[in-house]
Design a binder for these strands. Structure first.
Lengths: 341, 341
DNA sequence: CGATCAAGCTGAAACGTTACAGGACGACAG
DNA sequence: CTGTCGTCCTGTAACGTTTCAGCTTGATCG
């Protein structure tokens, strides 16, 4: 009776009464517990009852109240993407977000985005999430070989997946693009165009994948008996002007490269601009290889060698990995290396 | 006593006991209600008590349990960004996300991202959020003059802010870039370079800002007594090939433009590529004006006329607007038009 | 026939919070 | 001295969910 009046009240008020377990219990004549267990497919509920409950639930558009579940069970049904606000990687992050939410759609999980600034401690947002229990799992990028976040989360037993690998003897879920292979391919392609003196504009040295890319680059350069023209002063994270200056300096020097391998699309713009400024023609005086996720460069200069890195796929894979981790899957099954063709 | 044992249990177990109101109540010797009210600065709690409670809370790192609050009050402390996964706008969305979360940091709000596909109904995610009550407010883009989402949310009395304006007699919070003014500036700049025959590569006609941009363009073209070379077949949302073809056709035609105004940076790549392919030199045979948010084009071709649109600022403004709306501020105070210089 | 068991269902309690109604106590007016 | 008022505090209930222990009922077994 109590429920009935209540329901009628709300319906009369115009605001929808948002059905709860109690509503279904009242409609089916069952207890709240039974309804809950029926919807959760518990083994001690009769098949007929389950079907009846589910039918009613579907009919009235029942959705479990997230706050109720979360309060009772501690399960938030939230995955947090910890996003660096480095401008250079912002465009890529969007694709990651897309991939993640694509995978999460249809699951009970929501995606929340937690940013952290360039100057602040990357550990802060991670700690916040663990301490406040505001998510069931975490995804993050810009991984270092000795990563404090990985260490912390591993030690806390908190589910996570990284976009990039570590090198610290900890087995954990990750998705990584094979940047060593990318660099090899890039070198090979430039070599096939007859280029002999190659420079690598790589990512910042503290990130794990910097090592991979450098290793692949050097290995291929050596194998094909080419020259390695070192770029030390700048990375893909450097500002436009810095990169331009360095490239200009390089192109004017005695050790002028005839091919550049770029660690990212956005960072490729600067060297190309610098080179063209000096009268170089891409495809004639200089060839450029880039790794890019949204085909941008290829539209601009069709002579550029492009290797595709799929950030959307990274997103779906990472989402999958973290959800499976929450489900208890072992880490070693959740490690993906995306090898470019 | 009960509490005491409990607390000791948890502490001994090593897993942190995550303090609650009960913990503070126990430590201060006050009632749970008093603690709650003290932390919420209720008027019927003594000043001394408030300070004592707050001190203890700070010391032990108390954070209100979101699920508890949400269950009790219905307040989710969540803002949802409804994000179109159109690839063309993905890069921009990232900046929006950045701006929003920057504003939300330090507030109790979390940002959740709800995607919707190109083919699915834009109303779906909005309805989902309202029906499940999974956020306190909503932000979305790609606004149409008669926007179903705006109508629905307004009618539901659900707080929202739009990135773009409508034209349906409904007063609501928005942030919009003044695209009319942008187009005017672009035309003026091209005219100052001596260009007389201008084409506009604008956004899809169904979006509100398409009208703004077109109006500004036409007004300026008329005022400066220039020629309007119409582009009908493609928009900034069209694929690279389609735009290239259309531009190629145009450049080969009798009515060949000597200036192009582009509605977005990503869409500017295609016409420039097409024109250069045909032997045109930007800055000599053709001038291009673009609106862009991350300075990309300018790096590539310094001869391009660039007007900056700040998506990050849009994000902070929208977040502010929606939070204020939740707080009860009237819509007309929360309407911002960002006029380019 | 009584005991045991399984199947199917249930109410009470708890998660952490806030709204509500009310209590204790001192001060102050009549 | 009694009554009223204001200040400061408090217990209970409720939000929607799941866990726990336990209840019926009918069947099976010795």
């Amino acid at each position: 009776m109590d429920e009935r009046e209540h329901a009628i009240d709300r319906a009369a008020a115009g605001g929808k009464p948002r059905p709860t377990l109690k509503t279904i219990a009242y409609m089916t004549g069952l207890g709240v517990t039974t309804v809950s267990r029926a919807l959760n497919d518990a083994p001690d509920i009769g098949q007929a009852t389950k079907e009846r409950v589910r039918l009613v639930a579907r009919q009235i558009g029942y959705r479990p109240n997230r706050a109720g579940v979360r309060l009772r069970t501690g399960k938030t049904n939230v995955i947090s993407l910890i996003m660096s606000v480095e401008t250079e990687v912002l465009g890529l992050t969007a694709h990651l977000v897309y991939g993640i939410s694509e995978h999460l759609a249809g699951s009970p999980y929501h995606l929340i985005v937690t940013p952290y600034g360039a100057q602040s401690d990357p550990l802060d947002p991670v700690r916040y999430i663990v301490e406040t229990g505001s998510a069931d799992g975490v995804i993050f990028s810009r991984i270092e070989p000795q990563d404090a976040r990985v260490r912390y989360l591993h030690q806390q037993g908190f589910p996570f997946a990284t976009h990039g690998r570590t090198d610290m003897g900890i087995e954990h879920p990750y998705f990584d693009f094979d940047n060593a292979r990318y660099a090899e391919i890039a070198v090979e392609r430039l070599a096939a165009r007859g280029r002999r003196r190659l420079a690598l504009l790589g990512p910042p040295a503290h990130l794990t994948y910097s090592r991979h890319m450098t290793a692949g680059f050097q290995q291929a350069v050596e194998r094909l008996d080419l020259d390695d023209v070192p770029i030390h002063a700048v990375t893909t994270d450097s500002g436009h002007e810095a990169i331009q200056q360095e490239i200009a300096r390089l192109m004017a020097s005695r050790r002028r490269p005839d091919g550049i391998v770029c660690g990212s699309a956005s960072a490729a713009i600067s060297p190309i601009g610098a080179a063209e400024e000096m009268g170089c023609v891409i495809g004639r005086d200089l060839d450029v290889a880039v790794k890019e996720s949204f085909s941008l460069m290829k539209k601009f200069r069709r002579d550029i060698e492009v290797v595709h890195e799929d950030f959307r796929r990274a997103g779906t894979s990472l989402a999958d990995a973290v959800v499976r981790t929450i489900g208890g899957a072992p880490a070693h099954e959740l490690q993906t290396l995306d090898v470019p063709a």
